[in-house]
Design a protein around this nucleic acid. Sequence first.
DNA 1: CCATTAAGTTTATTTTCTGGACTGACTATG
DNA 2: CATAGTCAGTCCAGAAAATAAACTTAATGG
Lengths: 150, 150
Amino acid sequence: MKWDDLAEQPCSVARTVAVIGDRWTLMILRDCFLGIRRFDDFQTRLGISRTITAERLKALVDEGVLKKVPYQDRPLRHEYRLTDKGLDLYPVIMAVVNFGDRHYAGEAGPPLLHRHRTCGCDFQPVMTCSECHDPLNAREVETRAGPGAV
Amino acid sequence: MKWDDLAEQPCSVARTVAVIGDRWTLMILRDCFLGIRRFDDFQTRLGISRTITAERLKALVDEGVLKKVPYQDRPLRHEYRLTDKGLDLYPVIMAVVNFGDRHYAGEAGPPLLHRHRTCGCDFQPVMTCSECHDPLNAREVETRAGPGAV
DNA sequence: CCATTAAGTTTATTTTCTGGACTGACTATG
DNA sequence: CATAGTCAGTCCAGAAAATAAACTTAATGG
């Protein structure tokens, strides 16, 4: 199977992975959520080639995850900002962060802390059921074909 | 930056992406959560080369995300099962699924439905704050250096 | 025997990534 | 005015990684 074929699969994971399932794309998204917006900042922070930076940013813009917004005129310069669709990736990034904090944090603890402005507390993200609001556990979930199945 | 250098970064995203941030690894994990356990089943379902299947499974085993469990003796055969650490990736996969369901489901609806056994309902995963239990929103969160920062 | 299953390994080819130089449009400094 | 610097890229050749297809090993079933 080729990269591009993934997007055609009747599977939400495959379709999403076709967009973000790339090492550097995920790192770019992390930086987006940390407030990074400019080409050179992405490139320098990630330490990847400019070619890849340009290609990944373009792909994310094409997918509607990022948008280019001009921030000055002469010379014309754009910055990359998350769209509403891009903001919907927050749970993905937070799930990844949480896994890393649990399993790869050193003895000192996690490298970053997250504070929830609305309640004022440092928190961990918890994946819950939309219906009963209990935390989700893989073993408590049954999966079956839905309306969009082939 | 090289792939392997990612794991050394003082960032939970980087460390996790070093393990799972690969197209096929994420697809393999999806299949694991759907109950797939055998080499040939992974390889056939994904339609990827045996080489990549073998390499990715080995990497996941080395990382402690999967474990090889013998299911017969002559000839010796193993199946790949999620470890406890692997089960901790459930929120990541569900976050990805949820994004795909929202943005890439066709008119018919999502390809798969998820039922929470403990409450009996079909649900969507919701990322919430561990402290106030409200749904999380990127704009309501502040990030700052934690104890494990450089 | 011969075919089949399962779980890989090997090999040659194709694709992707990298680092570095280069471009173009401007701004700031002396 | 000349030179250096910034920002956002593009271009290119070599290096690294991914791929498909064939091959291997160890057994079983007919």
